Computed example of a mutant assay.
Amino acid sequence: MAAALAATFVLSVAGCGQKQQQGGNQATLVKTMKVIKRDTPLVYDYTGFVQAQQEMELKAQVSGQITAKYFKGGDNVSAGQTLYAIDQRTYQANVLNAQAGLANARAALANAALNAERYSTLYAQNAISKQVLDNAIMQRDQAQASVNAQEAILENAQINMTDTSVSAPFSGRIDTTALEVGNYVTAGQTTLAKISNTDPVFVQFSIAEPEYLKLSGSHDNSGAASLDNLTVVLSDGSTYDLKGTVAEVNRGINDNTGTMTVKALFRNPAHRLLPGMFAHVQATAGTKKDALLIPMRAVVELMYKKFVYIVGSDNKVTMKEVTLGPSVGRFYMVEGGLTGDETIVVEGTGKIRQGAQVNPQPMTEADLDTTVDNSATAGKKQ
């Protein structure tokens, strides 16, 4: 009985080994596509966000209670338009007081000037001493200094009086958190409202140094400089109808990212672009003849390098490192690593390894819209 059991066990193990070996030799079903070769526009895409060309916090220049508000939150206002009124009573009194002080100072100056002139005549007649004349001249000069001081006090009082009426410093849009009538504001501290200019606007984005150097000397198919004919694609996929141009470039390269910050200027007459919006900035650098394109889903990333699986004539796959260029819709443009004659694995990359035997099923560009790469899911199930 023991011998029979041992023999049965040996046969079972052998059978399992044969099944595993057979299973290991089975070809994995994958979907493949020939590398596409065609003339392709060189479009560089960058993620950015909209910024106001001008933006500021409108602060009170005098203290007091808001007595009037002449706009609604979200309104578009014009430069010089009156926005707020602050209680004027204290500042009116200060102006009147300063005017009275100036009048007194001018009267004192007129009297001192007459004395100085009179003593000057008497001194010429040797009727008074030089010291008496000097004292008269000194009193005249002091009176003039008092007049100057009172004029400055009056001017300051008038400025404060003017500042009780708050105007828009430039044309733009007011936010909806603006203060209402009745609030007390403190000079130089209280923010009344925020105002931003939304025509034109900036779209800020970051660009790698090599791409900036390439685009700065490139032109699109119409002959316009690449950085002077930018396109914006909004978050809903729509393309903004006006072109933009690079207006500001940061002074240097970021040491950590190797990129530089760029601001593109776009006209915004319909105020469609609002500060804070996300937007894709696209720059075109002409057309590349016979460009090599591969589906994005075919790319495998390992240790910060990009690879694709190439299917050989024996249906075995080989991993090949590739250098990728800009994205073109659902594709990457390949700048190095492929010749254009290869067949690559598009779906099923998560189920295969270097040298694996595959059962290739060809697919077309149209299939990319209707198929889903389940390689990641399949890998987890395994």
Rank of each mutant, 00 (worst) to 15 (best):
A7T: 06
T8F: 14
V10T: 09
G15Y: 15
K19D: 07
Q20D: 11
Q20P: 07
G23H: 10
N25R: 10
T32M: 01
T32P: 10
T32R: 03
K34M: 05
V35S: 02
K37G: 01
D39W: 10
V50R: 03
A52D: 13
Q53L: 15
E57M: 01
A60N: 04
G64S: 03
Y70D: 04
D75H: 03
N76W: 14
L83A: 10
Q92L: 12
A93H: 09
A93R: 06
A100G: 09
A112N: 06
A113G: 05
N115H: 10
E117K: 02
T121D: 12
Y123L: 12
A127T: 04
L133F: 06
Q142K: 05
Q144K: 09
A145S: 11
V147L: 10
A152T: 12
N156M: 04
M161P: 06
D163F: 13
T164L: 05
T164G: 09
T164Q: 11
G172K: 08
I174N: 03
A178C: 07
E180K: 01
E180S: 09
V181W: 00
G182K: 00
G188E: 08
K194V: 00
S196H: 13
S196K: 06
D199V: 06
F205K: 02
S206R: 00
Y212E: 07
K214W: 01
L215A: 03
L215K: 06
S216F: 03
N221P: 07
G223W: 02
A225E: 05
A225R: 15
D228T: 14
G237L: 09
L242W: 05
V249R: 00
V249N: 02
G252F: 08
T257Y: 07
T261S: 01
L265H: 11
L265Q: 13
R267S: 14
R267F: 09
H271P: 08
G276D: 05
G276E: 10
F278H: 14
H280Q: 14
K288M: 08
I294T: 04
M296N: 04
V299W: 02
Y309L: 03
I310H: 09
G312A: 04
V317A: 01
E321S: 13
G337S: 09
G340P: 07
K351V: 14
K351H: 14
K351Y: 15
I352K: 14
P360V: 11
Q361G: 01
L368A: 02
T371P: 00
G379E: 06
K381R: 04
Q382H: 08
